[in-house]
């Protein structure tokens, strides 16, 4: 085939590129309509022993754990594991107590408890998988809380028996919030790390480090949920303050969560012409 203007790219490459692009778009459309979900669900389930092992090895290699070298060290590790198990059980009991306390104090919502089964942090995403899905009444858009009732995220993808939660620190999530003590509101944005930022806060606003930030009336989240605490107020800009918020929910250490099942986001209609 003749190259196009000596770039080395042949018409065959153009046809290939167009074909791959069309197939890609077709797959995206099918995926968005949920047509491919059963197929993907089955594939991920079949691969889960292998993928789980790869994750476990990577976790080990990344420095969080190490093999025992001597008998004494093995014994120490055994005891530490026992202690960790007891602590985990105590933690689970504490989480369940916290859940119970929160649900009893906030009877306006209906809840479904769930365990975290996987964490996924990519370049563009911060997600959790929980062990409740459409069979348990979970729907996209439902709000997810930590056991203590702090806002953690919302459901973005639902399968029969598990769902994916997009965390509030994900760059694709914005939460409408207010700082009651300073009487200001705004929309949070992810700073790409473990905290949130609130930009364009007027310089004369009386925000202080330690102030509590809660969700305000919006379409995606119910109002009054604790989002986080202010950890930094940057006044280096001329007109506005940049406020850093640390989420109160332990997003990287969650073992169980609460899903609010009687709140679904409103779908706004476009403005009238």
């Amino acid at each position: 085939m003749t190259p196009i203007r000596d770039t080395g790219v042949t018409p065959r490459t153009g046809i290939w590129f167009a074909a791959v692009f069309v197939v890609g778009v077709f797959l995206v459309v099918l995926s968005q309509r949920g047509v491919l979900d059963p197929f993907q669900n089955l594939g991920l389930r079949l691969a889960s022993p292998f993928t789980g092992a790869v994750s476990a090895i990577a976790e080990l290699l990344s420095g969080e754990d190490g093999p025992p070298q001597t008998e004494l060290e093995a014994r120490i590790e055994e005891l530490l594991a026992e202690k960790a198990s007891l602590q985990e059980r105590a933690g689970q009991v504490a989480e369940l107590e916290a859940m119970l306390g929160f649900t009893q104090a906030n009877p306006q919502f209906q809840y479904e408890g769930a365990s975290v089964i996987e964490r996924r942090t990519g370049n563009f995403e911060n997600l959790l998988a929980i062990d409740r899905g459409s069979d348990d009444g979970i729907k996209e858009g439902m709000v997810v809380l930590s056991p203590q009732g702090s806002l953690a995220g919302h459901i973005v993808r639902v399968f029969a028996n598990y769902s994916w939660v997009r965390l509030i620190i994900d760059s694709n999530v914005a939460v409408q919030v207010e700082v009651p003590t300073a009487d200001i509101d705004g929309v949070t944005a992810s700073d790409g790390g473990r905290t949130l930022t609130l930009d364009l806060v007027l310089k004369n606003a009386n925000v202080q480090v330690g102030d509590e930030v809660i969700s305000s009336a919006g379409i995606n989240f119910p109002e009054g949920l604790i989002v986080g605490l202010i950890t930094n107020v940057d006044n280096s800009e001329e007109l506005f303050l940049r406020v850093t918020i640390e989420p109160t929910a332990p997003l990287f250490g969650l073992d169980s969560v609460l899903v609010i099942t009687n709140f679904e986001p409103d779908a706004l209609e476009g403005p009238a012409e």
């Binding site: 791959v20 692009f21 995206v28 995926s31 968005q32 491919l36 993907q40």
Partner: peptide, 9 residues
Amino acid sequence: LEPLGASVI
């Protein structure tokens, strides 16, 4: 967990 096919494009 991306729209299946996004990476193909």
